[in-house]
């Protein structure tokens, strides 16, 4: 795994992508900090992080787009397959290399509370824990974009897929809020989600029957729940989407100023899940 990690890390800094992502985050962080902390005379640098996480929607796909798409494009994926390495090691090597790139701006931002402390009182614990949450959010986004990269051999398509996934993630709460909070609206929205899930199952299994069975079972279960107590569905979709949104979680973590471990565990879980999906996608290509 360390060989893959070193090679990936080196490649991020032998071309522009690593530098661009780091510069992008630090420039925006600097501007936001100047507005919020210096002009606004506010000592908590963590206040910039929810807004800064929006720039990750661009920075993360720039870094992650090449992870697997480039290997397929250069036909070096065959080399990875025939090396005595497990697919998990390859995926984790690449994932940790990406995480190291994002450790640079996050590490640099650790200096912000120190600088701010020269001018007034700073809550270090709150700042550091928020930066930890921000870093884990980067990790979750990296995993999502790495998965998108494993789906295609075009880096451009990988980047577009990555940005789209993150934008959907960001806008999901807004879209969910736009839906009526009635029970039937929630039911229909969940039905659409179940259809999408069945499509994902079909992509992995390439079997109509399995996808159909998964979709039918979930839909039937939901229908039964709806028939038993339909009133519980009122506003449920908004709640579920709100509790799944990465950006919403980040906002809550910073604004409540609580060290909420569920948020950190949630980010880690998303990272794990998408790393797992990536392993499955890479493995699947060997079979098809």
């Amino acid at each position: 795994m360390s060989a893959i990690y070193k090679k990936e890390l080196k490649s991020y800094f032998s071309n522009m992508t690593g530098y661009i992502a780091i510069a992008l985050i630090l420039v925006v962080a600097g501007i936001l900090s100047r507005i919020l902390n210096f002009r606004g005379l506010y000592g908590g640098m963590e206040g910039i992080l929810p807004t800064l996480s929006m720039i990750l929607m661009l920075a993360v796909p720039i870094v992650a787009m090449r992870s697997f798409a480039e290997e397929r494009q250069l036909k070096t994926d065959l080399l990875l397959y025939c090396l005595p390495l497990k697919t998990t090691q390859i995926v984790l090597g690449k994932y940790f290399a990406m995480m190291t790139v994002f450790a640079v701006p996050t590490g640099a931002m650790l200096l912000y509370p120190l600088i701010l402390s020269m001018y007034g009182k700073v809550n270090f614990l709150s700042a550091v824990s928020s930066l930890l949450a921000f870093y884990l959010l980067c990790g979750a986004m990296c995993a999502i974009c790495m998965f998108m990269s494993s789906l295609t051999e075009s880096q451009v398509i990988a980047a577009v897929l990555g940005v789209s996934a993150l934008v959907v993630c960001y806008a999901s709460t807004i879209l969910a809020e736009a839906l009526p909070a009635t029970a039937i609206a929630s039911f229909l929205a969940f039905t659409v989600l179940i259809c999408l899930l069945a499509l994902v199952v079909y992509y992995f299994a390439r079997n109509y029957w399995v996808a159909f069975a998964v979709g039918t079972v979930l839909e039937a279960g939901m229908l039964i729940a709806y028939l038993i107590d339909g009133s519980r569905f009122a506003g449920l979709f908004q709640k579920v989407i709100g509790s799944l949104s990465l950006f919403q979680k980040m906002n809550e973590f910073v604004s409540l100023q609580l060290f909420d471990t569920t948020v950190l565990i949630y980010f880690l879980s998303v990272s794990f899940l998408f790393c797992f999906f990536t392993v499955q996608t890479v493995e699947k290509r060997r079979w098809s």
Binding site: K7, S11, S14, L78, L83
Partner: peptide, 27 residues
């Protein structure tokens, strides 16, 4: 096993030495 696929699986932005060191490490 050592394998050379039909299209050599090389990284264009590496030098041969860097590339071979990477493969050696991965092996």
């Amino acid at each position: 096993i050592g394998y050379l696929p039909e299209i050599p699986p090389v990284y264009p932005d590496m030098t041969p030495e860097e590339y071979l060191r990477f493969v050696a490490g991965a092996k």
